[in-house]
């Protein structure tokens, strides 16, 4: 159960930029990776259909298209990310209720501070939240 999320710094930077761009609304998206690899490689920013400061929801048709695309590419949603814009980067009860991808890393970014971001990652399985370490790697070094 000692899990860790290993993720490229360029992807983390792009997620933070997405969260900043949509602030004060919550931003959300997926990072796909090869099935079974546990390695997030392809960032897919999603629309927040709720367009809300306190709630996010994938557009169901966009989600179908993206999930099919992942299936066709033999990918899976390795990371599902969203931002909290006024509270800490910790899963809310709503996040836990909805968490439906037991194999995914749930990455939360808090943009409540204007100059710094809090970035944390969790596994959410059967309503149980387990925080994990984030190992941010630089692809130019790692590859």
């Amino acid at each position: 159960m000692n899990s860790v999320l290993t993720i490229d710094s360029a992807i983390v930077n792009a997620i933070v930029a997405h969260a900043r761009r949509d602030h004060p609304d919550e931003a959300c998206g997926v990072v796909a990776g090869p099935a079974g690899s546990d390695l997030p490689t392809r960032l897919i920013p999603m629309d927040n259909a709720a367009r809300s400061m306190t709630f996010y929801e994938f557009d169901s048709l966009e989600q179908l298209r993206v999930w099919r695309e992942m299936d066709d590419n033999d990918e899976e949603p390795v990371v599902i990310y969203h931002s909290h814009t006024a509270t800490e980067a910790y899963p809310s009860r709503t996040d836990i209720s909805f968490a439906g991808e037991p194999a995914a890393h749930y990455l939360l970014v808090s943009t409540r501070e204007p100059d710094s971001e809090e970035i944390r990652s969790f596994r959410i399985v059967d309503g149980v939240v387990t925080e994990e370490e984030i190992n941010i790697v630089d692809a130019t070094v790692d590859a």
Partner: peptide
């Protein structure tokens, strides 16, 4: 027929989110 988990959540408490929706 395709079944997918709805991907949703957010900072708001569940009851408040339900009311908002």
């Amino acid at each position: 027929v395709t079944i997918l988990p709805a991907v949703a959540g957010g900072a708001l408490g569940f009851a408040a989110a339900a009311a908002l929706l």
